[in-house]
């Protein structure tokens, strides 16, 4: 699996705002790795049932989190899905969710390498 681009400054920023405690950061990251699959599951369900509202909220949340951790590709995909939901014109939601799923997996690998590996 190829590495996802991670914006180091976002992580640095996050570390900054939470007070600079690296353990806190790792804790948040673990939380992210737990929460994100939940959102993905919600998105898959919403995509299947055509529930644009929940699809949008889940995309938004995942976008927000991935941005915190500098997973720019993942955040970008979530954002475009969010915008699509907002405008009401979602084409092939399932495959977009699948792409987001893949991006998350890549981001997880990269984040593990960058943050956990260094730590």
């Amino acid at each position: 699996m190829s590495d996802a681009k991670i914006d180091g400054s976002a992580i640095e920023r996050l570390l900054g705002v939470i007070g600079g405690d690296r353990d806190d950061l790792l804790e948040l990251l673990d939380e992210f790795f737990v929460v994100a699959p939940d959102y993905l599951r919600k998105m898959q369900e919403a995509a299947l049932s055509g529930d644009l509202d929940n699809l949008r909220i889940a995309s938004h949340s995942l976008k927000s989190n991935s941005r915190d951790f500098g997973a720019v590709d993942l955040a970008g995909l979530c954002q475009s899905l969010e915008h699509a939901c907002k405008s009401g014109a979602v084409s092939d939601a399932a495959s977009q969710v699948a792409a987001i799923d893949a991006a998350f997996a890549a981001a997880k690998t990269s984040l593990n390498k960058l943050v956990v590996g260094n730590g």
Binding site: V35, S61, N65
Partner: peptide, 16 residues
């Protein structure tokens, strides 16, 4: 916040 990470981040910021 519905997002647990955001909650945690926010809480930590407020703590600082």
């Amino acid at each position: 916040d519905d997002n647990s990470i955001n909650r945690k981040v926010g809480q930590k910021i407020l703590k600082t």
